[in-house]
Design a protein around this nucleic acid. Structure first.
Lengths: 129, 129
DNA sequence: CTGCACCTTCCCCTAGACTGGAAGGTCAAG
DNA sequence: CTTGACCTTCCAGTCTAGGGGAAGGTGCAG
């Protein structure tokens, strides 16, 4: 599969795939005789994982860690476990933060839904926030 | 009130206030005879609003929109309500994704933790990822 | 007078995640 | 043989929300 095809399959651009390769999220691609990158299905799987993780707000560095753990054929188990534990803690932290933000926003929104727009105090700019 | 005082009053830096002015979130400040910016209480109100909105996860562009609606003499309430609804939907999506991702990573971690630690000390391949 | 904290503008830097464009190679179709 | 859609590398720009620091003006205390 060439880069354009792979990119289309996961809804990314060719630029993004090359960028991920450069950042180490994708291994250096195999090349066809003409120098074109050639991808297999496992790259699609990997890109899907990246897309899902990105969608969840993980940074490329964090995703890279997870992928490298998965790639590490010979990483010491304790290190792998530690990295995953840290990743979990990080995810828990992010979830906590997002849930807190959600409840803040929900409170603002509830106020907005219950309020009389005409009563909006201009001195506060918007009384919903 | 000079810029440092205003910044301290809302827990921002003078850099941030000048930046907000540059980005149109604050109107061009009045100047004292010596050229120093001079702020009134309404700027504090405005900065507080910006801070609250940032706390709700709004971008400066979104906040700027709200402020400009207010500055135009209209009540931004409907706009804000829509914005908050969209923000909520977005947050719900992010939380869902993040929780799903957490369970994926947790599964990796559980597998790793279940392995025999003694067997991990050696150069054994960590095959459980 | 000097020191010091404050203020001014100016421009560059950061990180994260791309995106655009230039300059050029490859290949199947018309 | 040329066109057009691909692909290559490399360098540069974008956006967000500021931060760093230079070079210089202001104003009060000692």
């Amino acid at each position: 599969m060439r880069i354009g095809e792979a990119a289309a399959a996961v809804g990314m651009t060719t630029k993004t795939l090359r960028f991920y390769e450069d950042r180490g999220l994708l291994p250096a691609a195999q090349r066809a005789a003409n120098g074109y990158r050639s991808y297999g299905d496992e790259t699609i799987t990997r890109l899907d994982f990246i897309r899902r993780s990105r969608g969840a707000g993980l940074t490329l560095a964090q995703i890279s860690d997870i992928l490298h753990i998965r790639d590490a054929g010979q990483a010491p188990c304790t290190h792998v476990s530690d990295l995953l534990a840290r990743q979990l803690k990080d995810l828990d932290w992010q979830i906590t933060e997002l849930v807190a933000l959600r409840s803040t926003v929900a409170r603002f929104h509830d106020t907005a839904a219950a309020a009389d727009p005409a009563a909006c105090d201009s001195k506060r700019i918007c009384s919903y926030l």
